[in-house]
Design a protein around this nucleic acid. Structure first.
Length: 181
DNA sequence: CATTTGATGTCCT
DNA sequence: GGACATCAAATGC
């Protein structure tokens, strides 16, 4: 399991370190290949402006989930770092339970199973009921890579505020990203 | 191929 | 009422 100290840092420090970790939810999972950091004081972050009913998990214990509804219909999954900080999981390389994920996603094309924040929650079966749950190896696990990767740093995607903050990290050339880079 | 559009939860003004 | 950390299908070149 991951040292709790790993999560109790700034989101912008945790996000690149999460690249290469194996995320397991139930019988499905994959390797994290794309993340984004959101911090307090960051106008694009849900924690900007303090706690609300919706974002309260973002101010809860580090190393837990923050799951929210995006655009009224998609679930998005974050890992909470220190209070008000969270890392959005944007894409996975599918490794576990591909058949189950394909059924949930209703697609045959393996490269599109987890290639986006709204897609990977469907593939993993994550929804509001996972909000606030810990990555403790019970229903949700996180396993460190055997060797560190060197992700590429870039600007975030799909936001309209603080668009210049270079807080997106991804595995260069990976075919599993939410968009080609 | 690129661009537009529809689905509609939760928070903010 | 409007904005939004999105996706897939429809439409237009």
């Amino acid at each position: 399991m991951i040292d709790p100290e790993f999560f109790a840092r700034r989101a912008a420090e945790v996000a690149p370190d999460l690249i290469g970790h194996l995320l397991i939810v139930g019988e499905t999972g994959g390797i994290i290949v794309e993340t984004e950091a959101y911090e307090p004081g960051d106008p694009a972050s849900h924690s900007f402006g303090g706690p609300t009913l919706r974002n309260q998990s973002m101010f809860g214990p580090s190393g837990h989930c923050y799951v929210y509804r995006s655009y009224g219909l998609h679930w998005c999954m974050n890992i909470v770092c220190r209070p008000g900080h969270a890392v959005l999981l944007r894409a996975l390389q599918p490794t576990h339970g591909l058949d189950v994920m394909a059924v949930r996603r209703g697609t045959q094309t393996e490269k599109a199973l987890c290639s986006g924040p709204g897609k990977l929650t469907v593939a993993l079966g994550v929804d509001k009921s996972h909000d606030g749950l810990p990555f403790d190896g019970h229903s949700i696990s996180l396993i460190a890579p055997s060797f560190p990767l060197s992700p590429v740093q870039s600007v975030r995607i799909g936001i309209s505020r603080a668009v210049d903050l270079p807080w997106r990290w991804y595995v260069a050339g990976s075919p599993w990203l939410s968009r080609k880079s």
